[in-house]
């Protein structure tokens, strides 16, 4: 098998259930090396389950999950840990930093655990913290950072050693627009400059065109993000609807799709308003009474 030709992540007919609920049904897709898949869908559509399967926290009831061509569903826990250590990183939806540890210790965690020499760890930590803009916060406790800085530190902790595959579970949730865009820019840089393959889970649909239409460019002065006229190749959108793969294609195709599931995602307001109209008005009686009095 030619290693360079294998995909980064591949799902083959993956299904998984919890009690009576089928979280994913027969899902298949391929993430090419250096590519990015933006996974979206309603709450409980199976987005986070998909990520947990991709990193091997869950094993599917049926189907195969391949990382760099290796089926992780039949892998021993120790081999799986080694695979994650060497090739994968994940940013969680909630703040999952190690409390009681400094920014440096959080960022260095993966390398400390691999018994790297201290001088090499220091170099790698400074590099990755500079990448996320936290190079001046080394000695601060993780709890002392602001929300945006915490998220960037999570990125740094996952990116140290530059793993080839990254999984992002709604990395901008709970952030203000400026910090959210900062995080998106870092993800674009990781993808375009370091060639990292990634799955990006989001409910914020505006983030998908941002990731698909912006590119990181290296120059002598460093790197910068630029908007391009078309779309970045190898960016795909995957829509999950109650565990089923409802759509898989380019961001352009997603925007133009007439599939009801896509339309529901793109225009969710109408239904919400209809739902609102059906609700009984508890104050109606009060208003009538008040009107009667007047």
């Amino acid at each position: 098998m030619n290693f360079t030709q294998t995909s980064a992540i591949e799902f083959r007919n993956v299904s998984i259930s919890f009690d009576d609920t089928q979280a994913l049904r027969n899902v298949s897709f391929t993430l090419p090396r250096g590519g990015m898949i933006c996974v979206t869908g309603d709450s409980r559509s199976g987005k986070s389950v998909l990520l947990r399967l991709a990193i091997g926290f869950l094993r599917p009831d049926e189907g195969e999950v391949l990382i760099n061509g290796q089926d992780i569903t039949v892998m021993e826990e120790n081999d799986l840990l080694a695979l994650r250590r060497e090739t994968m990183g994940m940013v969680f939806q909630e703040n999952a930093l190690f409390t009681g540890q400094t920014v440096y210790e959080n960022a260095a965690y993966r390398l400390t655990d691999r018994d790297w020499p201290e001088d090499k760890i220091e170099g790698a930590v400074v590099e990755v913290l500079t990448f996320v803009g936290l190079q001046d916060e080394l000695d601060k406790q993780a709890e002392e950072l602001s929300g945006g800085m915490k998220r960037r530190l999570e990125l740094a902790r996952a990116l140290i050693g530059w793993p080839s595959i990254m999984l992002f579970d709604e990395p901008t949730s709970g952030l203000d627009p400026i910090n959210a865009q900062h995080v998106l820019d870092l993800i674009v840089r990781a993808r375009d400059i370091h060639g990292i393959s990634s799955i990006f889970v989001t409910k914020a649909l505006h983030e998908i065109p941002y990731l698909a239409k912006h590119r990181a460019v290296e120059s002598k002065a460093g790197s910068h993000i630029e908007k391009i006229s078309g779309y970045v190749p190898d960016v795909r959108v995957l829509l999950l609807d109650e565990g089923k793969l409802a759509f898989f294609g380019s961001p352009q195709e997603f925007a133009q799709s007439s599939l009801p599931e896509v339309q529901h995602m793109l225009h969710p307001v109408t239904e919400a308003i209809h739902g609102e109209l059906d609700v009984d008005d508890p104050w109606q009686q009060n208003r009538k009474s008040k009107g009667d009095l007047e």
């Binding site: 994650r84 994940m90 969680f92 996952a158």
Partner: peptide, 22 residues
């Protein structure tokens, strides 16, 4: 327990550490 509910143990596993050993 706090580490578990705040996903720190999942983060540890994602970084390739065995929480039992660590």
């Amino acid at each position: 327990g706090s580490m578990l509910v705040s996903e720190q143990i999942d983060a540890m596993r994602a970084l390739g550490s065995d929480p039992i050993k660590k």
